[in-house]
Amino acid sequence: MYLLNLYNCLTTYLVLGALLFAFGIYGLVSRRTIIGMLISSELVLAAASMNFMAFNRFTAPDPAIGQIFTLFIMAIAAAEAAIAVSIVIAVYRNYKSIDTEDIVDLQG
């Protein structure tokens, strides 16, 4: 059965990465709260990691490089999440809201 051999195909992982990327873009565009957009950006980063790991497994000459790059992506994502959460808390303290429509002081 072809369906049971999906885990041996590069295309499966690439399509999964594209799916995660599409979900992340949809969430980034359609969300109205900052935390929802942060969650969607984490999905986009996971899509990038998935692509690196897939090419690392199937085509790359040295199978350690992709894993190391994925570890670096995880570190950067952790730093990004920490800063984004602190910004969310600062915004909520000043505006009592995390809605992106309410943070419009310069709109007049």
Binding site: L14, V15, G17, A18, L19, A22, S30
Partner: peptide, 20 residues
């Protein structure tokens, strides 16, 4: 919502076609 769905669906279709 609909525009974001259209954009993400196009991105998914293009990337999947490219990968396949």
């Amino acid at each position: 919502g609909p525009l974001g769905f259209a954009v993400s669906a196009m991105a998914f279709a293009a990337l999947s076609l490219l990968a396949a």
